[in-house]
């Protein structure tokens, strides 16, 4: 199949304008087949807008977009059948029974997964006869994942999948997504505003700030690219002094040379990835 070649998602110069507001100002992205890709950014950065354009739910103002080889604006039913999506807060079909809804959704696809097995795999088997509205938040989200993957999609969209979860539910959900990506070879695009989540789940992360991709790469590449300045502290004339630098080792070496020996109160703090990320977000948003 030609569809297996080329990246799962290719975006060039994507723009979105609502009235006078530019939400996306030229986003470039390439998501490879089989990878878990995180679109990370603060609230309001345009993550959901981006994902909705890729899902074919929203028309873009400009730029080129290809999802599984098709422009989402022209995506037909066959194309749609190859996508799965878990939106931020589904509350649909509250009166349906869990098993009933999953079977119904499975009925739209050529080669769906077996609904019973899927419920089992997601720990929902015992709730199959329950009404959807009776599920807890975490159970509901797992059902949403089940509904998103029952058609064996090649590409799964997860929009802020753990928003509103407690840490326990979040950990369980992370294990679920890791399993899906590892066992099924599915391409996953997830959006999140939580750096730790992106680091844990994604092969590659793109940071979206102010309508543009600021950095894109593996967590390690990201750390290097966004690394904020380290702080070198020491005591001089009874007062604490600080110097900020990308090369704290050099600052320390110069201090040692100046003192000709040990530097009083020497202390170096390197920012965590989290701090670097927030620093980057603040810089870009201020610009």
């Amino acid at each position: 199949m030609e569809v297996l070649k080329g990246p799962a998602v290719e975006v060039r110069g994507l723009r979105m304008r609502y009235g006078d507001a530019d939400v996306l100002r030229g986003v470039d992205l390439e998501i490879r087949r089989g990878e878990v890709f995180a679109l990370l950014g603060p609230n309001g950065a345009g993550k959901t807008t981006t994902i909705e354009i890729l899902e074919g739910f929203r028309r873009r103002s400009g730029g080129e977009v290809s999802v599984l080889g098709t422009d989402p604006g022209d995506g037909d039913e066959r194309w749609r059948a190859r996508l799965g999506m878990v939106l931020q807060s589904w509350r649909d079909h509250p009166k349906w029974r869990v098993g009933e809804l999953l079977e119904h959704v499975a009925g739209h696809y050529d080669q769906p997964r077996e609904p019973g097995e899927l419920l089992d795999a997601l720990g929902l088997a015992e709730h199959a006869g329950k009404q959807v509205r009776m599920l807890s938040g975490g159970q509901r989200r797992r059902l949403d994942v089940a509904l998103g993957i029952v058609g064996r999609p090649e590409l799964l969209f997860l929009d802020e999948p753990t928003a509103g979860f407690d840490p326990q539910a979040r950990r369980e959900f992370h294990r679920l997504v890791e399993g899906l990506a590892a066992d099924e070879g599915m391409t996953v695009l997830l959006t999140t505003h939580d750096l730790a989540e992106a680091e844990r789940l994604a092969d590659r992360i793109a940071i979206l700030v102010g309508g543009r991709i600021a950095v894109c790469g593996t967590a390690a590449e990201l750390a290097e690219a966004v690394q904020a300045e380290s702080e070198v502290w020491w005591i001089e004339d009874g007062a604490e002094r600080v110097s900020r630098s990308h090369d704290p080792s050099r600052v320390a070496w110069e201090l040692h040379r100046r003192y000709g020996g040990p530097v009083p109160g020497l202390r170096i703090t390197r920012p965590t990835l989290e701090e670097s990320y927030l620093n980057l977000v603040n810089e870009k948003e201020a610009a």
Partner: peptide, 20 residues
């Protein structure tokens, strides 16, 4: 009500969903 609860959006995400 289906629209308010998001059922219309759900069916939109399914192949042939709106017709079904």
């Amino acid at each position: 009500a289906d629209r308010e609860e998001g059922a219309l959006l759900r069916v939109r995400s399914l192949p042939g969903g709106t017709r079904a």
